[in-house]
Design a protein around this nucleic acid. Sequence first.
DNA 1: ATACGATATGTTAGCGGTAACAGCAGTAAT
DNA 2: ATTACTGCTGTTACCGCTAACATATCGTAT
Lengths: 320, 320
Amino acid sequence: MTVSRVLRNRGDVSEATRERVLEAARKLGYVPNKIAGALASQRVNLVAVIIPSLSNMVFPEVMTGISDTLEDTGLQPVVGVTNYSPEREESVLYEMLSWRPSGVIIAGLEHTEAAQAMLAQAGIPIVEIMDIDGTPVDSAVGISHRRAGRQMAEAIIAAGYRNIAFLGTMMPYDHRARKRLEGFEEALAKAGLALVDREFYSGGSALLKGREMTEAVLTRSPQVDFLYYSNDMIGAGGLLYCLANNIDVPGRIGLAGFNGVELLDGLPRKLATMDACRLEIGRRAAEIIAGKRQNGVIGGEVIELFPTLQPGDTIRKPVL
Amino acid sequence: MTVSRVLRNRGDVSEATRERVLEAARKLGYVPNKIAGALASQRVNLVAVIIPSLSNMVFPEVMTGISDTLEDTGLQPVVGVTNYSPEREESVLYEMLSWRPSGVIIAGLEHTEAAQAMLAQAGIPIVEIMDIDGTPVDSAVGISHRRAGRQMAEAIIAAGYRNIAFLGTMMPYDHRARKRLEGFEEALAKAGLALVDREFYSGGSALLKGREMTEAVLTRSPQVDFLYYSNDMIGAGGLLYCLANNIDVPGRIGLAGFNGVELLDGLPRKLATMDACRLEIGRRAAEIIAGKRQNGVIGGEVIELFPTLQPGDTIRKPVL
DNA sequence: ATACGATATGTTAGCGGTAACAGCAGTAAT
DNA sequence: ATTACTGCTGTTACCGCTAACATATCGTAT
């Protein structure tokens, strides 16, 4: 018992005994068994983080925000990856919940019915991140992708472009990309426009795909004067393609992506984009988990963040 | 007890009872408590994976290899990130070991003394990945970065370049980048050459840093005819800089990076690089953990993988 | 009818810690 | 001297599950 007290810094132990215990622990290479500890105390310092992928730049940055904020709370993030598969999400969630974490941070608002039920039943703070276009189980931190799509469309139209094409992922479960496209088309419609062309891809090097898709669209639909990409990586590929082929950007063709990835800073020309507040999302989500744990508040809150449009060098200045 | 048997698919249970149990579990939203289960059975289906960073492209791909292989073994990877800090590595390791995982996959061979001791004492399979230039605690899967550096130097020299500069990270704890540089300089020395210039960076957008550093070096040392980058990202930045400034690549200046990241495929010209066998490393490491668990073998094995040099378009053809 | 093996279910004792409380010495206040 | 309190250490009963063993049930060969 005294050992337990020393190792957890809880309760009074005389300095002499504390020393003896620590010395012995060090000598024996003793590592306390958190499994037993957690079972006895009904407390687990783990936070489940469930995200679709690690291979694009977006989630690692969210992770950074989460880790930074959790750093000095004693909480530890544990990552599960779903590869954009709802079934896999469900099973990862089940697996993680069975370790009784202190909270769950999960990407998106769309989950299987079973997953929804598990989240609702879990009795711990749940934060759904990235997206707020929908109804969260508990709390949510994110941006409105629909609005983001609309905003970009409005900026593009204001700049005088009229023949607009969309290039993006095919993934049926990338709900956020879908919502951006919906918002985008909605704003086009309001201006009496419609997409002139669209092109989808899946898998492979995004940068390369961006080049290929851009070539395909420009060949097929020469009248196109703007390319809206569902993410910055393929947008960057498109930009490199245009530069390599001496296409006047943003005069003849305008370009825009989404995410505000750091990578763009290194490109010869800055791609228009909207930053997705990734770091901030991670931070705020972690704060909710850490905070709730303290004061036991259960009411869900929705935090909407507002991405800023970065016009870069690939959109003409608006015609007034 | 019967419930336990049903939920773990272990032992004989009549079909009727099994159905009843599953139905009840579903209706109640019952999620078994793995903490208690693990304590009782002394078995934990978790594999600790400890890596320095998620934000460059290399570790996510290793993770993919690990996840894929572990997928159908019932084992689950749990990721911890150290940010290249030995102290943080030590504490992350301690934290993870206290959950009694079935194995540890940890990047690099360099750890604090305490971390080394913990790994040695843990009594579970340990796989140190990425690097094999050193003495592993147990098993290791990786490449020789020293050899990789040497190989690249030899190829560069064979191609006729003589005034070679190095551009890389400043991070004192990126041992693998350091070893590559050591091997590189060693091979230069053997050919009677030495680095003409060197430039280091830390933090920020690697692509942008690549541009800036390249400009700095070329301005400061105009005689330089080859730039060896410690990673592909800054190499790509350098390449874009050269192309933008109409520098003849690979005639006037040759370029090479390291890692073989997918990103390069999308660039207007292919950067010379060496792929680091990331996917394969993840796979083999996971196999060792999964396999050992089965047959209880404890002997450590060292698996050296051999990266292939991809000359791309940024090294002149060797002069024979 | 009896014995037997196979299948199905129940019982008991932990796993390694921690919460809660009990005990005990020493010191200060009454 | 008695009481009250503080600081330190020890005791006990779990936490929720599973290994190991015990028991019950049933069809079937003897």
